[in-house]
Amino acid sequence: MKKLVLGLIAVAVVAGGAYLAMHRTPSGVGAPAMTDRGVPNPLRVATEGAYPPFNVAEPDGTLKGFEIDLAKDLCRRMGVTCEIAAQAWDGIIPGLQAGKYDVILAGMSATDERRQAVDFTVPYVLTPAYFVAPKDSPLTKIDFGLQRLDLANLDEASTQALDKLKAALKGKTVGVQVATIHANFLDTYLGDTVTIRRYDTLQNLSLDLATGRVDAGLADMTGWQPFLEGTDGQNAATFGPGITGGLLGPGIAAALRKDDGRLLDALNNAITAAKEDGTMKKLAEQWFHFDASAK
């Protein structure tokens, strides 16, 4: 009898907690409203909120940044309202899969590996990857003989520049943000000659560039821009060619669930339209101070 009572209490407590935790979707019974082109209205957008100038939180709790303005523009084009919320990185993909929001704009690089789990739109930002080192480092004095290096199209000059890079960085410590396309690049092309340090954020990598714990860092230009423009970055400079193509992928894109084909089409159309009428270029120049938009 006692056990029965104890068991019943346990069930009641758990059920009570579950009841409190449940609430129906905001629009009531059933799925949220849709436009006739299959776009949920409102469109729920998640971003990270700590990655300037893409997305960053303000002291009053609001969000701003390139991706916030872009999301609003895309929603306007699709005729829906945007609900943009910040979500910590560690929960951002499970939240998408669990249906907490419909699309993520958070500076995510589209890669084939990630396409197994989510769909990506066409890219909206694409900038070359650059190495950065302290200005007084001999690395910044080397002449690599070319401005751009396309990994998808390695001609003789590019191969020479790549070899030169390899020789210059031999035995050095190079920092990179963990699990990025840039980490892939280091693993593939320089993995056997340099020590790779993997940072959770670019900002922490910047701190260690300043203290000299790493000899150089690799990231794309939009990532370096806030550091190089800030006070800490005055003693640092890029070196070597801007690297694009190949495993560096097509650029930064919005991510959505795999079963959302109609939303994907609508977003792709809106992004393409924003590129064609010059909005994308304008927003990029406003936030990055140069045209970082994907072509």
Partner: peptide
């Protein structure tokens, strides 16, 4: 990770915004 804004998350957002 479940989108609740507690102390550590505010600190993280603030350091991201202000460097």
């Amino acid at each position: 990770v479940v989108a609740l804004v507690e102390l550590m998350r505010v600190a993280y957002l603030a350091q991201g915004a202000t460097r």
